[in-house]
């Protein structure tokens, strides 16, 4: 059969076309994954709540004023030592009576563990800078994360972040909850 010869398509410009598309996607792409510190807000007040009955020693107060200065446990504090202080408060390794109490609880995969009753109470002023607020939140989260890491290391010889088993993650979260409570907003002193 006589076949008409089709001329070969010149593919030389294919690379150029592909380049053009590539550059378009390169420019429009945003690679950044959204990261952040997750928190859960408490439900709004109805007005008839009783103040919770928490022993004074179980509250770790952190105040941030409008000049970004800290008051930690009624003493002027510093952001660089906040993490260690919060950790010590929650763990209370020497069983001091001015730091948090803990109770023995049995949490299935972990067995009996000491669960701290400590709550971190955070209060900020309307004039506090967001940067400082996040830094404080970050340090408090870091304290909890480090405690979780330690516990996970001890029980499962893995860091908390490396755990895959849901039960194990749940157990660690129960043993060391994120006990950060934010005060109802009101203006606190200027200085």
């Amino acid at each position: 059969m006589a076949r008409r010869q089709t001329p070969e398509i010149n593919a030389g410009s294919m690379a150029d076309i592909a380049f053009l598309l590539l550059i378009f996607f390169l420019v429009t792409t945003t690679m950044d994954v959204d990261t952040g510190i997750s928190r859960k807000l408490p439900p709004p007040l109805t007005g008839d709540e009783e103040p919770p009955d928490i022993n004074e020693r179980n509250i770790f107060t952190v105040l941030v004023n409008s000049r970004d200065r800290l008051l930690v446990e009624k003493k002027p504090g510093d952001i660089t030592t906040l993490r260690a202080k919060a950790k010590e408060f929650l763990k209370n390794p020497q069983r001091r009576d001015d730091l948090s109490e803990s109770t023995m609880k049995s949490i299935p995969p972990l067995g009996n563990v000491m669960v701290s009753k400590g709550v971190i109470s955070l209060k900020n002023d309307r004039g506090t800078s967001y940067k400082m607020y996040i830094a404080v939140q970050n340090e408090l989260t870091a304290a909890i994360d480090e405690l979780r890491d330690e516990l996970a290391m001890e029980k499962f010889s893995k860091k908390y972040g490396e755990l895959i088993n849901e039960d194990q993650i749940d157990a660690i979260q129960k043993a060391i909850p994120i006990a950060i409570s934010e005060a109802e907003p009101e203006d606190i002193g200027d200085n």
């Binding site: 990261t35 952040g36 997750s38 928190r39 859960k40 807000l41 439900p43 709004p44 900020n124 970050n138």
Partner: peptide, 19 residues
């Protein structure tokens, strides 16, 4: 703080501070 209070009232409790 004002935004957080509004979110609480509207029942959007899960928040994330982008960093």
């Amino acid at each position: 703080t004002d935004v957080k209070q509004e979110l609480r009232k509207s029942g959007a409790f899960k928040i994330n501070y982008s960093t």
